[in-house]
């Protein structure tokens, strides 16, 4: 399943995505965050040490978390700020900590958290605005390590067709 999380209020992007997805008859779910309440991560560590796998913040992020653990791909659509995805887009990634456990292991030459679930979710970014492209590519590759997966790439909203070609 492909999970698409739209953190912008522009549903023209998801509208176009929907048309492309229907054409390709892909199995996808789209979550529009405009009507949802999603906080930032407060770094409490409860999801690792007090209520393992469960976030202490009871808001709509739980909807997304429950879908991520069954998704082959996660696409986050985000506005940009300061050359990067904006805080709403970043919050979607910061709050994935419950999918990791407190346990640590070496993956290659670097330490990583042991995943809580078997599912591996590749990640992709679709942005609206200006970003430092090289940095966004580097960051997305790095962020994928937290899913023990790989980056699907970074695409501007004008490159939706290219992004869809990476969806399967």
């Amino acid at each position: 399943m492909i999970l698409i999380v739209n953190t912008t209020s522009d549903n023209a992007i998801t509208g176009e995505l929907k048309r492309c997805i229907d054409e390709k008859t892909l199995e996808a779910e789209i979550v529009e965050c405009a009507s949802l309440k999603i906080s930032h991560c407060i770094g409490c560590n409860y999801c690792w040490l007090k209520t393992p796998g469960e976030c202490s913040i009871k808001d709509d992020y739980e909807i997304i978390l429950k879908k991520i653990i069954h998704a082959d791909q996660l696409w986050v659509i985000s506005d940009t700020a300061l050359g990067f995805i904006d805080h709403k887009g970043k919050n979607i990634f910061d709050r994935i900590l419950p999918i990791a456990t407190m346990y640590l292991k070496f993956k290659g030459d670097q330490m990583r958290h042991v995943p809580r679930y078997d599912q591996r979710t590749d990640i992709g970014i679709i942005y609206s605005g200006e970003v430092e492209r090289d940095y966004m590519d580097r960051w997305t590759e790095r962020a994928a390590l937290n899913f023990e997966s790989r980056s699907l790439g970074v695409f501007s909203k004008e490159q939706i067709k290219e992004a869809v070609s990476c969806m399967c």
């Binding site: 991560c41 700020a81 300061l82 990067f84 904006d86 805080h87 970043k90 919050n91 960051w139 937290n146």
Partner: peptide, 13 residues
């Protein structure tokens, strides 16, 4: 926070 700066700090900046 996830290879970059925390979402809340970004929100302030």
């Amino acid at each position: 926070y996830v290879e970059c700066i925390p979402g809340l700090l970004l929100e302030f900046l």
